[in-house]
Structures are given as structure tokens and as C-alpha cells.
Design a binder for these strands. Structure first.
Lengths: 121, 121
DNA sequence: CAGTATCCATTAAGATACTG
DNA sequence: CAGTATCTTAATGGATACTG
């Protein structure tokens, strides 16, 4: 029943990390409304903050920032700040982040198939 | 930007179905705190309500009921009621539900690896 | 046994304005 | 451009009691 980052603020999905279940751990790391969506947009290379925002329909700057910070803290995304004016920041997948690629690909394929089965046009 | 089941009550994760993204669709179907956990406990066959409850640490009856209903409505889980006293209800994966097995297996393996990397004992 | 119903607490998400 | 800060709303989760 051990939890991590207890009582932290602005920490998404952290309350239910129970260290004896790997699936729960993973859901904590990449579950939720936005994370896989952010990650899959980074599949083909680096993107800037604004590029991510415009690619991910309906995400607010606040949500994008919060989730990117978490993904960065968890070593799934790498953030690079360029010392330029105006500022330029790029995000990319880390090696462990890239290992998730087959997961969102399969999940996406499953969704397409499930939708075709249950919600035919 | 089309949504489904708008304004429904007690419908988890339904607000953000945008029909032109399969990944978002899948996340809606099996995302969230509990669904994959419920499903992976059904991987090896049928289970009764009480068995699921005791296998899934910390889940309340209410949450288990709500999520099982959704999974049933979405054709991912099959519910069988036996006409007995006391009541007996069994849950099992459907075919489309079984197609998710590799996803939680991979996700679980990823979690184990990620944890070993970032949180060594 | 397998749930419902009710009420309440916590958390995630969204809108908007502002800044280095 | 890439964020913060603040406030508000919506969604999720939990406790407890009760029932066919």
C-alpha cells in the first residue's frame, strides 16, 4: 500500500501508486486524459510547445504544461531549452518513452476496430 | 469535435470522445483509474463480483459496479446472471476484450522496467 | 451475494488573464 | 514563444447505509 509523492500538489495521478502492481504503476505514469496523446504526437521527432498545443485538439496550455512536466520528471520525455529570444523549447521522447510506441499503436488499432464493431456508420 | 453520450450521468470518461482520433477513443473506453486493472484480472477466466472486489486492492463496490457496467455496455466484458439464491453473477472478457490482453501485458512489462530504471531499490 | 442510494471529499480540467 | 497564476467548474472517488 505504499504511495509515492504523497501530499504533493499539482501532481496528476500520483495518489494511487501501489508499488506491488506494475500495471497500476504504468497507468499512473501514462494514464489519464492526455499523456498518451501527447506522447504519440512526439513519435516522429521533436516538437515545440506551441506545435504540441496545436496538434492536440482541445488541450489547454495549463494541462499541456502540467503533463509535460510530469512526463519529464518521470523520464519519459526530454525537454530542451534553447537560449534564444523569443524562447524556444523542444520536447522529445526518451528511450524509455519510445518503448511505449507499440502500446499506443496497438491501442489505436484496437480503438478503430472496436469502433467499427460497435458504432458502424 | 463530435461527442457521444453527452450530458449522460454516471458515465465515466465519456465527455471527451472526439470521433476522429482512435487513440482518444480507446483511452475513453479503457482509460481511467480502474478499467485495465479490472480487465487484466479477468484474463484467466470468469470471476464473480466479490472475487473481483477482493482481487483489486482498494476498489470500492461503487467504482467496481460503475466500471463493470460501462465495460459491459461497451462490449468489452460479458455479464452472466445465474438465477440462484443467493445471487451469482459472473464476468468474463468478450472477444474484443481479449484483444486488449497484449496491451496490458506490455504496459505491465514497461512499468516494471521503468520502475527498475527510475526507482531502484 | 451483488449490488443501489445518498451524500460528501478530492482531483482533474477549463477559462481567462498575465509575464519574462 | 512558452509558459504562470488564479479562479471556477466538472469529474471522479469514497463512506456509509441499505436491499432483493
Amino acid at each position: 500500500m505504499a504511495k509515492i509523492k504523497e501530499n504533493s500538489t499539482n501532481n496528476l495521478n500520483r495518489k494511487y501508486i501501489i508499488t506491488d502492481c506494475n500495471l497500476t504503476y504504468s497507468i499512473c505514469m501514462v494514464g489519464g486524459r492526455w499523456k498518451l496523446l501527447i506522447l504519440c504526437n512526439l513519435e516522429n521527432g521533436k516538437l515545440r510547445f506551441g506545435e504540441l498545443r496545436s496538434k492536440i485538439c482541445n488541450i489547454t496550455e495549463r494541462m499541456l504544461t502540467l503533463h509535460l512536466r510530469e512526463l519529464e520528471n518521470d523520464g519519459i520525455v526530454k525537454r530542451t531549452v534553447y537560449a534564444e529570444v523569443p524562447p524556444k523549447v523542444e520536447y522529445e521522447l526518451t528511450d524509455i518513452g519510445r518503448e511505449l510506441i507499440p502500446i499506443w499503436e496497438q491501442l489505436s488499432n484496437w480503438g478503430e476496430k472496436h469502433r467499427a464493431m460497435t458504432r458502424p456508420e
